[in-house]
Design a protein around this nucleic acid. Sequence first.
DNA 1: TTGCGACTATGACGATTGGTCTATAAGAAG
DNA 2: CTTCTTATAGACCAATCGTCATAGTCGCAA
Lengths: 186, 186
Amino acid sequence: MARAAKHRRQLIETAMRLFREQGYASTGLQQILAESGAPKGSLYYYFPGGKEELGRAAIELAGDKILEMLRGVEKRHPADPIAFVRVYGKTMAGWMAESGFQSGCPVATTLLETVPASPEMTETGNRVVDAWVEVISRVFVAAGVRPREARTRGEQVLASMEGALLLARVRRSTRPILDVAKTIWS
Amino acid sequence: MARAAKHRRQLIETAMRLFREQGYASTGLQQILAESGAPKGSLYYYFPGGKEELGRAAIELAGDKILEMLRGVEKRHPADPIAFVRVYGKTMAGWMAESGFQSGCPVATTLLETVPASPEMTETGNRVVDAWVEVISRVFVAAGVRPREARTRGEQVLASMEGALLLARVRRSTRPILDVAKTIWS
DNA sequence: TTGCGACTATGACGATTGGTCTATAAGAAG
DNA sequence: CTTCTTATAGACCAATCGTCATAGTCGCAA
């Protein structure tokens, strides 16, 4: 084993980036292989399930990155939903602008494309989203909102942000994201 | 012109449905041709720009359908944003459930996939979205919100709904949509 | 050292489908 | 019968994803 499956990691990271920028179906394995530097055979060695399994791995990695970011924001504002969402929004807006409005939500595009045809992907998507909502909800709970309602709030915040990311991409502007970030009420 | 370009219309309608359910890149022209019943040659006769031009036409048609729906809701609740959003959400939730969570926003998937690579599509997407926001904003204005702020509110409502549609698809539940519909504040 | 076997890793191949274009058929008008 | 527009089928090549037979590499026993 050449150093803990280096190619495996490279494949996932490249796939994550390309799926995020171009979408799942529009991105060919060829491009992923070329840009990752991994050989063709490795793909089906590490991912017997082919493109879809690679897609799930990419979603999971992307989910972890976002989760890490959310936890970082939570650490700064553990009990202040308004501040939390503002920073969350600013972070996403920053990523969006840096990439020339190419890197939106790393999972939205892929999920929209693959969920209709794949129960496994749906399951993976749910797990990822759940983890995000959990963090956001925690902030509401810490602010005194009842757990049950906090969860609903968490989903609402996430929905708004996801929608804003979509609009931002079409509009080529961070405006929709920053607007949403200002709209969380008590 | 044989009967007002019947095949042209069939192509657009079929494309709209398939793009909505499966995504843009995942849907082959072959399938569109087969399900629409239009002959193969017709596609490049009616859409010299190929798949992308057909995609734009599909987005525009879908945009019109949603616009028509929004105007219908506006007619029922011309100056009551809360009621407006509730009915808007119920309608989308109904469509979603009917289709087994396959028919989400008819433009979101296609836009996410194509916008990064196509300025024309971006332009089309913007026009469609603008038209929606205009209707939603009008309701806020009628309720006494200043025009400028009303527009921001309109975009926020749209963003929330789009995000909710995404979540609904992953969760296979109308819950996120209905939750959002309850969250519009004064 | 040498040989063997098991596990890791890989590039060449193939069947299929992708979107696109061109040469021609069908139909109306003169 | 010709001419122009409308409309169409089929050929086109590149790219798709997936499979397979084989090459490399390590530990271990003879």
